[in-house]
Amino acid sequence: MQLALSTLGCPDWDLERILSVGREAGYDGVDFRGYRDEIDVTRHPLFTDRADETRSRLEAAGLSVSALSSSISLCEPGDRSARVAEARRLIEVADAFDVDRIRVFGGGDLDAHSRADLARFGGETMREILAIDGAENVRWILETHDAWTASDDCQRLLDELPADDVGVLWDAAHTVRLAGESPRETLDALGDRIEYVHVKDAVYDPDHHDATDDGYVYAVPGEGDLPMADVVEALRERGYDGWLVFEHEKRWHPSLADPDVALPAFVEWFRDQR
């Protein structure tokens, strides 16, 4: 497996710091989910006007861009122009950096629409995105997230999305915490479509000021309660050799450990799983 860090974990770092720590810690790549004050990297000059310079700096550090993580939600009804425009910008950045995967969300409001209708909206949005010139050159990966976290629910949306163009981003912490699935249950259900994986650890502490809605507080890998070691073991058993991304959500949860500590700790934790 190849290891990538998500820039969610180091929202205050500049590119030099990201690349320096990434290289020294032993990462293979970077998943750009925002850069400093800009969550949409397609609107930052480092990834547009200065893309050649940024790519050269990545190559010099021995790192690649594992994926681009968008904010696109497929299953929202109504005008799709903003989502399609974001997808078009992402395709341009992906082409500049030889990126082969772009993350999307399912999203949608189950209080306002049935799951079947949301899945239909998702299929319609995805087909509109796939009509963009160059969209066929990347894989669009649907994260196990929000209304589409449980494997059965995720599969319901996948049934509306073309398998030739869309895979699954397995956020293992989500399926464990929110869907109550063991890692092997998720892999048995979605393994043929999983081609990118997020991992993070957490402890149950609902009184903590920075707890998630379900009462968990993210932790340095190996210091939490989630079966992340089982995730790695199950992936190896299936012969998975893709990207394993440490998604340290410092941007959303400021009380988490500083990236200087957490990012190297993940690599050390992963090496201990061998």
Rank of each mutant, 00 (worst) to 15 (best):
V197R: 06
S6Q: 02
W243T: 07
S64W: 10
P227L: 00
Q273P: 13
F32L: 00
R236P: 11
M1F: 09
A112W: 11
V93D: 05
H174M: 03
H253S: 12
A234W: 05
R103L: 14
V138G: 03
E124A: 14
F97R: 14
W269N: 07
H198M: 09
V99T: 03
W252C: 09
Y218T: 05
F121M: 05
R80F: 02
A219V: 05
S81F: 11
G34T: 00
E223Y: 12
I18A: 00
E143T: 10
S255L: 13
D40C: 11
Y196V: 06
Y240H: 01
S69T: 12
D14S: 13
Y196G: 04
D165W: 09
L5H: 01
R120W: 06
L15R: 06
H209G: 10
A189W: 01
R236F: 10
L178M: 10
L263G: 02
Y218F: 13
T149I: 15
D272N: 14
S73G: 13
A96G: 05
H253Q: 13
E185R: 14
G222R: 07
A82L: 15
G34V: 01
D225F: 11
R89I: 06
V197A: 13
Y196W: 11
A61Y: 04
P45Y: 04
D272R: 14
R156T: 14
A262Y: 03
T149E: 11
R127D: 06
R33T: 08
G78Y: 04
G9H: 03
P162T: 10
W252P: 02
L130K: 03
V99G: 00
R88A: 09
L19A: 00
T186F: 05
I72Q: 07
R33W: 13
G180C: 06
M126D: 00
V21D: 08
L110W: 03
S81K: 15
L15T: 01
Y27I: 00
F47G: 01
F105G: 03
T42S: 12
A211D: 00
D95F: 09
S73F: 15
R274I: 06
L8Q: 00
D213F: 15
D146L: 03
L263W: 14
E195W: 10
D31K: 05
P77E: 07
I194A: 05
D31Q: 12
D117P: 09
Y218S: 04
V138I: 11
G107N: 12
R83S: 15
N137F: 06
V217P: 04
L46D: 07
T54H: 05
L187D: 04
D98T: 14
R156A: 15
A229S: 09
D14E: 15
H209R: 13
R271D: 12
D260S: 11
R55Q: 10
D153H: 15
A189I: 02
V245E: 07
D188G: 01
